[in-house]
């Protein structure tokens, strides 16, 4: 346990010692801020419209603002994750520091979990930036906080499983760029898999849609906690970290 924390702290430090962390946060603040602005603007104009029509309709902030913002944030996450994970192992392999880790009295899974936790905490720190926007809503309205919490829980789970996949891809190369591009390709694929349901309803399309990480996020964005989605995310996390462990082991046999 302490070893995991030692590795995790070192990783977090190196995120914040380089411009990566700040750059990603700034980029994310900009994009998520823009989406938040757009969603609020739509909400306000719809509200005005319905009043001018003379028959005001009750409008839900959760439904009109928080949900679309969370959905957008989940997609932006796909672009951020490769940048968080690409350096995790690729950089250690390139600079040779992997030899230090591998010859220290630490187990492989401790190294992997430490790195993955650090990436997850980094991702959560980035997400926290978008939470600032949503907190503004509480000042002027009364959104329900419970679905919001579920939504963020879902975002963290979704991030966790993509980060696990990214961590795995980072172990396969010593080039950060390749790791980043590879992870990005997989993230993108896991997102667009869901689109097949738009034009097909065969069994294959159901399977493909099931594999899409975004499909599983939708219930969370509505504030629904469904055990099947939680299980999906957890199994992908475990699978990703398992692949990482196998890949790290194979480094020793091949290198």
């Amino acid at each position: 346990m302490t070893n995991i924390w030692i590795i995790c702290r070192k990783e977090l430090k190196s995120y914040f010692a380089s411009p990566i962390a700040y750059g990603l946060m700034a980029f994310f603040a900009l994009i998520s801020g823009y989406f938040f602005y757009a969603a609020t603007a739509i909400f306000v104009s719809r509200g005005m419209e319905s009043q001018m029509m003379g028959r005001p309709m009750p409008m839900d902030v959760n439904e009109w603002v928080i949900r679309p913002v969370l959905m957008n944030v989940s997609v932006i996450g796909l672009f951020l994750i490769p940048m968080i994970t690409m350096r995790l192992f690729a950089e250690e392999k390139r600079s040779g520091t992997i030899e230090l880790l591998a010859t220290s009295p630490v187990r492989d899974f401790e190294i992997i979990l430490g790195k993955w936790f650090a990436a997850l905490l980094m991702y959560i720190a980035i997400l926290a930036v978008s939470a600032l926007n949503i907190l503004i809503l509480f000042a002027y309205g009364s959104p329900d906080w419970r679905p919001l919490l579920v939504g963020y829980f879902g975002l963290i789970l979704q991030g966790g499983c993509l980060l696990a996949i990214g961590t795995f891809i980072s172990t396969t190369t010593r080039n950060q760029i390749i790791a980043g591009v590879g992870t990005f390709a997989i993230c993108l694929l896991l997102w667009v898999l869901d689109w097949v349901t738009a034009f097909e309803t065969t069994a294959t399309s159901k399977v493909l849609s099931y594999l899409s990480v975004v499909t599983h996020f939708e219930p969370f964005s509505k504030g629904v906690l469904d055990s099947k989605d939680i299980i999906f995310y957890f199994s992908v996390i475990v699978f990703g970290l398992f692949l990482t462990a196998r890949s790290m082991e194979s480094l020793r046999w091949r290198s």
Binding site: I6, K10, G96, L100, S104
Partner: peptide
Amino acid sequence: PETPPLYPEMEVIEYLNFVGRLK
């Protein structure tokens, strides 16, 4: 190892602390 396993973004003392904990 042949190339010392160092993290360029760390301070020397920080690095030695990290390795010490790791060991």
